[in-house]
Design a protein around this nucleic acid. Structure first.
Lengths: 205, 205
DNA sequence: CCTACCGATCGGTAGG
DNA sequence: CCTACCGATCGGTAGG
C-alpha cells in the first residue's frame, strides 16, 4: 500500500514521474548506441542536469533503470512503428505499413543508434534475467504481429508462399534487423532500400 | 625495427606469443557472451591464472587486446566454418557446406555465446574506430564469399532467382544471424532448423 | 531531489 | 612476467 499510495498533492509525485520519464527516454537513446549496460547513472544524470544519486533514488537499482528503459523504448516503438500501421487493413496493407514505418523509424533516427531492440537484444541474449525476459517479450509481440498479417495474406490468397506464417515472420524480422546493422556499419541508408527490395520480392510488398 | 626484432633465443618471445594466443582465445569466448567492451583485463587474467598487468603488458592497451581478439575470432571462424567448405565445388555445394558448417559452429558451441560476430557487431556498429573497421572487414569477406557462391549458382542455372547476388547474400546472412539470436534467447536449437528450412526454400539448399 | 561518501573495479604504469 | 600503485568511474547508500 505504501508504495502505491495516492499521489501527494504538493506535486512531488508528479515531478518524480516527469524525471523518471526524462531519464528513461535519454537512457534509451544512449543505449541504442552504447548498449544498455554501458549507460551509467552518471551519463543520464549529466545529460539531464540532475545528480547521479537523484537518478539512483528514482529507480532504486541499475537493473530497475534498465527495465524501465526497455519499457520506455517499447512504448516509443509502438507509438512510432506499430500504431500508425494499425489503421490499415489487416493482411498485406498492414504488413506493408509496418515495414514502411519500421524503415522510416530507423532512417529518421528515432533512436540515434538505429533500432533500440536490434542494439540491445544481442547484448542480453545470453544473460538470463528480467531484462532479457522483457526484451524477449517485446520481440515475441513484434513477430506475432507480423505473423498475423502474413497468415491473413495467406488466407486471402495474396501470398503464394505456403511456409508457416511464424517462419515467414522470422524472415521479415531477420531482413529488417540485418538492414539496421548494415546501415549502422556503412552509414548508408541504402541498406534499408536493399531490405525493401528483398521484402518486395518475397512478400509482394 | 625494435618492435619486430628477431625472437630472442631464450624463449621469452615464444612464451609471450603463447600467452597472447591463450588470452585472445579466452577473450573471444567471454566476449561472445558479455560483449567485447565488457571483458576486462582482470577477467581474462583470472581465467588464465596470470596477473592483470601481465595481460596489459602483452597488449599495451585495451583496444589492442580487442583488435587481437577480433583477429583471433576471425581465424577460428575461418577454421571452423570457411575452410571445411572450400573443399566443395563452387556454387551450390559450397554454399550448402558453408550454411551447414555455420549452423554446426553455432550449435556445437565453438563460442559459448553462439556466433562471435553476431554478438559483437551490434556492439560496435555505431562506434567508429579500428575495432568496428576490423569487424566490418570480416563481415564483408563473409558476405562476399556467400555472394560468390550465389553468383555461381545463377551462372550455372541452378537458381531461378535473378536478384543480384550481393542482395541474396545479404538475405542468407540475415537469416543466419537471426537464427543465432533466436537460439540464444530461447535456448532452443530449433531456431537453427527454422533458418535451415527458409534457406532450403529460398535457395534450394 | 541534493552533497558526501563507501568499497569495488576499471585501464594503465612504475619499477623490478 | 610480477607486485604495487595511480586516478577515474562504477552502483549504491547515509543523511538531510
Amino acid at each position: 500500500m505504501a508504495d502505491d499510495a495516492e499521489a501527494t498533492t504538493d506535486g512531488r509525485r508528479a515531478r518524480g514521474d516527469r524525471t523518471r520519464r526524462q531519464v528513461v527516454t535519454r537512457a534509451a537513446a544512449l543505449a541504442s548506441i552504447s548498449g544498455l549496460s554501458a549507460v551509467s547513472l552518471n551519463d543520464v544524470a549529466r545529460d539531464l542536469g540532475v545528480s547521479k544519486s537523484g537518478v539512483a533514488a528514482a529507480f532504486g537499482t541499475k537493473e530497475e533503470l534498465e527495465l524501465a528503459t526497455v519499457a520506455a523504448a517499447r512504448e516509443i516503438f509502438i507509438e512510432e512503428v506499430v500504431a500508425p500501421a494499425l489503421s490499415r487493413k489487416r493482411g498485406r496493407p498492414r504488413l506493408r505499413a509496418l515495414v514502411d514505418s519500421w524503415l522510416s523509424y530507423v532512417e529518421r533516427g528515432v533512436f540515434p543508434g538505429g533500432c533500440f531492440m536490434a542494439a540491445v537484444l544481442p547484448e542480453y541474449d545470453t544473460k538470463p534475467g528480467p531484462v532479457r525476459d522483457a526484451l524477449h517479450d517485446a520481440r515475441r509481440a513484434w513477430r506475432q504481429l507480423i505473423a498475423d498479417q502474413v497468415a491473413q495474406m495467406q488466407e486471402d490468397g495474396q501470398l503464394e508462399d505456403r511456409l508457416p506464417a511464424p517462419l515467414l515472420a522470422f524472415e521479415v524480422d531477420a531482413l529488417l534487423a540485418a538492414a539496421n546493422l548494415e546501415r549502422n556499419l556503412s552509414g548508408d541508408d541504402g541498406a534499408l532500400t536493399d531490405a525493401r527490395r528483398l521484402l518486395r520480392a518475397r512478400f509482394d510488398l
